[in-house]
Design a protein around this nucleic acid. Structure first.
Lengths: 127, 127
DNA sequence: GTGGTGTTTCAAAATTGTTTGAAATAGGAA
DNA sequence: TTCCTATTTCAAACAATTTTGAAACACCAC
């Protein structure tokens, strides 16, 4: 029962411009409980934070390429480096971003660290 | 038929460490054509660029919230602003980012601009 | 014309993300 | 022990993104 204006004046109801909201929007806003109702339909801030963090981790072509490689098979850092042709520390940075986002995991083998996709990382790819 | 080492010495084949690639990785790498084969299985740089750009557009909770709102119904800037409670210019910036990424479109109505999701924007949400 | 509303644009500041090269670490081999 | 290899960490430099507030614009009403 949220209304768009103060509504003391009937002429205003015809012209919601006075309250700053276009007619059609106001009308369908009412069907979902006005601005307050709309707010309640939205995901929580915590959820939005989590989802945006996942997008942020995927927001770089190098990292996307790493994910694509690991989707083919788990790989050690040296192979990833050979394919990407970037500096060690740069690669390490991007691996760190993906790892912190929970998209990949690294397992220490004898001499090397083998990286592989997590379930969440795999999901990222078919999206 | 890409191999992992120079292979002049048979003892080396048993120990691919000399060529910097762990045994298991080297073995399965061979089944996909070595590093070169792996490279060929990866998406093009142009594609990775496009996909990462889409993720970048979604990499902010404010923008994700705007997408969620517009998934409920098209809205004018003023309503979006009322829900988010942020400054005009800040909102305008984020709308611009989403628009440039092709996730939303704005249509000039009489007095207002009504924003709505594009198909691509809608896809972003069920992902 | 003036004034008001809704929205964008602009430039500066603040923040965040990325790259670089050097140094550190951890493990194995000699 | 010393050396070597694989990888990470660090700090500085650099680049990109975001926020801010002011100004601009476009449109409508008066």
């Amino acid at each position: 029962m949220v209304d768009t204006g103060e509504n003391e004046d009937v002429s205003r109801v015809k012209e919601p411009a006075a309250s700053g909201i276009p007619e059609e929007i106001a009308a369908s806003l009412c069907t979902c409980g006005g601005i307050e109702g709309l707010e309640n339909m939205l995901p929580s801030d915590a959820y939005l934070e989590r989802v945006s963090a996942r997008h942020r981790a995927c927001a770089d072509p190098i990292r996307l390429k790493i994910l694509a490689m690991l989707a083919i098979q788990p790989l050690c850092v040296c192979v990833i480096k050979a394919v990407l042709g970037i500096a060690d520390s740069k690669l390490s940075y991007h691996l760190g971003v993906l790892k912190k986002a929970g998209l990949i995991r690294g397992e220490q083998q004898v001499n090397w660290i083998i990286y592989s996709l997590t379930d969440e990382g795999a999901e990222c790819l078919d999206r």
